[in-house]
C-alpha cells in the first residue's frame, strides 16, 4: 500500500475513526486531540512503508493506544484510565461488529436541513453543545436553566433530529 493509499484510507474513514475515539473517550475534546495525533502517526507510518492488511482495524488499534497514552499523560484524569482497557475491549468488539459505513454526504445534508427546522432555543442549545463544545453547566448558566433541564432539552433535540433524518431518508429513497 502506498503512502498515498494509506493516507487516503485514513481520510475516507475519518468519520468512523472519530466516532470510535468519541465512543472510547466520551469526550469530543479528547477525541479531537487524539485524532490529530493519529493523523501524524498515519503519515509517519505510511512513510515507513506500513501496509496494514486491515487498515480500519489498524487505525482503531492506533486510536486505542494513542488514547491510552493520552490518559496516562493526563494525570489529572487518572481516574478515567481505570477500567479503560476493559472498556476499550468492548468498544472494539462493538465497532468490529458494526463498522461505521462509509461517509454518506447525503446524511450530513439531511441533518443540516433538520437542524434548520429545530426551534430556535433547541437549535441554540445544540449549537452550544456540538458546535461550541460547551458543557451542560455552561449552557445552563447562560440560559438560566438547571443543568437537568438542558440535558432533557438536548436529549429531545437529538431525538427530533434522529426522527427527522429518518423521515428524510425515506422520502428521498
Amino acid at each position: 500500500m502506498t503512502q498515498d493509499a494509506l493516507t487516503r484510507r485514513f481520510l475516507e474513514n475519518r468519520n468512523g475513526l472519530f466516532s470510535y475515539l468519541l465512543a472510547l473517550s466520551g469526550d469530543p475534546a479528547v477525541a479531537e486531540e487524539v485524532f490529530q495525533e493519529i493523523g501524524v502517526t498515519v503519515l509517519r507510518e505510511s512513510a515507513r512503508g506500513a501496509e496494514p492488511a486491515d487498515p480500519e482495524a489498524w487505525l482503531r488499534g492506533v486510536a486505542r493506544h494513542r488514547l491510552a497514552d493520552h490518559y496516562r499523560a493526563e494525570k489529572r484524569k487518572h481516574s478515567r484510565e481505570v477500567g479503560f482497557a476493559g472498556f476499550a475491549d468492548v468498544v472494539e468488539q462493538a465497532f468490529a461488529e458494526h463498522p461505521p459505513s462509509a461517509a454518506d454526504p447525503g446524511e450530513i445534508l439531511r441533518l443540516r436541513e433538520c437542524l434548520d427546522q429545530l426551534a430556535p432555543r433547541a437549535r441554540a442549545i445544540v449549537d452550544a453543545r456540538y458546535r461550541d463544545d460547551q458543557c451542560l453547566d455552561e449552557i445552563a448558566e447562560d440560559l438560566g436553566w438547571t443543568t437537568n433541564s438542558v440535558k432533557v432539552a438536548l436529549s429531545r433535540a437529538r431525538k427530533a433530529l434522529g426522527e427527522c433524518i429518518a423521515r428524510r431518508r425515506l422520502s428521498t429513497g
Binding site: 469530543p28 462493538a94 461488529e97 458494526h98 450530513i108 443540516r112 437542524l115 445544540v126 449549537d127 437529538r158
Partner: peptide, 20 residues
C-alpha cells in the same frame, strides 16, 4: 453495542453538521 456505535456515529455527524 449496536446502539452504542450508532450513537457515537450520530454524535460525530451532528458535530460536523453544526460546525458546517
Amino acid at each position: 453495542r449496536a446502539a452504542f456505535v450508532a450513537r457515537s456515529r450520530f454524535e460525530t455527524i451532528l458535530r460536523r453538521a453544526c460546525i458546517q
